[in-house]
Amino acid sequence: MTVPLPPLPPLPGDDVEHVPPGRSLVDVLDDQLGTVTTLVDELRADDTPDDRRKQLADVVVAELSRQVSAERQYLYPTVRALLPESDALAASGGAEDAALLRALKDLDGTSVTDPAFQGRVDQVADLVHQHAADTAALLAPLREAATDEQLIRLGNRVEMVKEAAPTRPHPGAPAGRPWNAVVDPALGVVDKARDLLTGRTTYAEDI
């Protein structure tokens, strides 16, 4: 069984297997989860100054919002196509994403000086660690089931989706195809305009 992706443009020597440039879906998602787990652990630490915590919270919310969009558009459909026996895990991952978006929305609306802030950070951190472990359980068999070409194509699409994805949580937005592929970029435009106006940091490499 193959993932239904558009064909590559014709190249000289069509009979030779072609692996496109880029990074594998597995590597892209694994790196993203590693980055956000590190950030959320720093955010959770008691000795992190408030100004740093505010910046960390903004980036964690943005990075995870993009991550959820990418997983919904490419990871879970791919898992269902290539690993039918993992359908329950994909469904569980989708439910985790929904819970994570709700927790991120609560965090995003809470000041670092609010007594409720730490509890909301703890909730997000717990969900992130659980989600990272569950996603790893999907990525390992996916690496074995898909070809290098498929995984790199999907990795390239995830990278592109992240650039257009929302940077804030929208729990009520469509979670499945085809509507998420239409609605998420529109929400992303609005979010990026708000980020620009408020000077909000949204990328891990910028802190």
Rank of each mutant, 00 (worst) to 15 (best):
P4Q: 05
L5Q: 06
P7H: 11
G13Y: 03
D14R: 12
E17W: 08
V19H: 11
P20N: 12
V26M: 09
V26I: 14
V26Y: 02
V28Y: 03
D30P: 02
Q32N: 13
L33M: 13
G34I: 12
L39C: 02
D41Y: 14
E42Q: 14
D47P: 02
P49G: 05
R52V: 15
R53T: 13
R53K: 15
R53H: 12
L56W: 01
A57C: 14
E63P: 02
E63F: 00
L64R: 08
S69H: 00
A70I: 03
A70H: 04
L82M: 10
D87G: 15
D87A: 14
A88G: 12
S92F: 00
G94A: 10
R102M: 04
D106R: 11
G119T: 09
R120F: 09
R120G: 04
V121D: 08
A125Y: 01
L127P: 07
L139T: 11
D148F: 04
N156C: 02
R157P: 06
E159V: 08
E159N: 03
M160N: 00
K162W: 03
A164F: 00
A165H: 00
A165K: 05
T167Y: 02
P174I: 06
G176S: 13
P178H: 00
A181Q: 05
V182G: 01
P185L: 05
A186Q: 05
G188A: 00
V189Q: 10
A193T: 15
A193V: 15
R194W: 12
L196I: 11
A204E: 07
